[in-house]
């Protein structure tokens, strides 16, 4: 391979001369808009029983009674009645608790559907009408304090969240490639997350799961955290503190 020829070809590419200035302006505009948007909502409703209940959590899935159900969280905290109805229509599914570092993480369930939220999700600049939603609750650690300052996010908690699909390498198919995003609502010593991606139903009948794991920084899935067996089964590597929650088929 002639490196000079290779470089010359790529140097000949002609991009817009104002790409940098346009991009910087776009990012500034979006950053300003973000500052004006309340992304961390605090419910004014009476706080339900969200006290730490580690014993109950470890005991059985009946711990769900101590947390808002996913439909309650979607309706009462996130103000997303469409998502709430989807959870109600799906019916009860067992919550899946896990301890990750100093946090108790409860996977409450996932649903998929078309136009379930009041906002439009975008992926690669296009409106995505079919999306998947997951609700999980995190308590413990310093969340109660963080909630007071409106700063409990996956990043501040040192957690990363991503959906995974059996047979697809986590470093190739993950929250980042699926346009993932979340809304967080703190309530007492618990923070609830409504996590959204483009629809995971497109991968049916492959098994879909969500991984929540401790990480420093952004935590983009890589071979440092995950392994995939020949049959496509995905596991967390030894030494990675986290959990993989399987999505129950309704």
């Amino acid at each position: 391979m002639d490196e000079k020829r290779f470089k010359k070809a790529f140097d000949a590419l002609s991009f817009s001369p104002d790409f940098r200035s346009r991009t910087e302006a776009l990012l500034r505009e979006r950053a300003a808009g973000k500052e004006n948007t309340v992304t961390f909502k605090r419910s004014k409703r009476t706080i339900l029983a969200t006290a730490a209940c580690l014993a109950a959590l470890a005991a059985s899935v009946s711990a769900a009674v101590y947390w808002l159900s996913p439909s309650q969280a979607a309706r009462e905290l996130f103000d997303e009645p469409g998502v709430a109805e989807a959870f109600e229509k799906q019916g009860d599914t067992a919550v899946q608790p896990a301890r990750i570092g100093e946090y108790e993480v409860v996977f409450e369930g996932a649903v998929s559907g078309e136009n379930l939220t009041r906002h439009a999700m975008q992926l690669n600049g296009e409106i995505v009408s079919e999306s998947s939603y997951m609700v999980f609750a995190v308590s413990g650690g310093s969340i109660a304090e963080l909630n007071k300052t409106h700063s409990a996010t996956p990043t501040t908690l040192g957690l990363s969240i991503t959906p995974l699909v059996k047979g697809h390498a986590p470093w190739e198919l993950n929250a980042w490639t699926l346009g993932g995003g979340y809304t967080a609502v703190g309530q007492g010593d618990t923070v609830y997350f409504l996590f959204e991606t483009s629809s995971l139903e497109q991968f049916a009948p492959e098994e879909v799961c969500y991984a929540v794991y401790a990480c420093e920084g952004m935590g983009v899935p890589s071979t440092a955290e995950f392994s995939m067996a020949e049959d496509g089964t995905i596991t967390l590597n030894d030494g990675v503190d986290g959990a993989i929650f399987t999505v129950e088929q309704p």
């Binding site: 990012l27 980042w176 995003g181």
Partner: peptide
């Protein structure tokens, strides 16, 4: 855009 909106380090 995605990187900034995720707010990460």
């Amino acid at each position: 855009l995605y990187l900034l909106e995720r707010g990460t380090s």
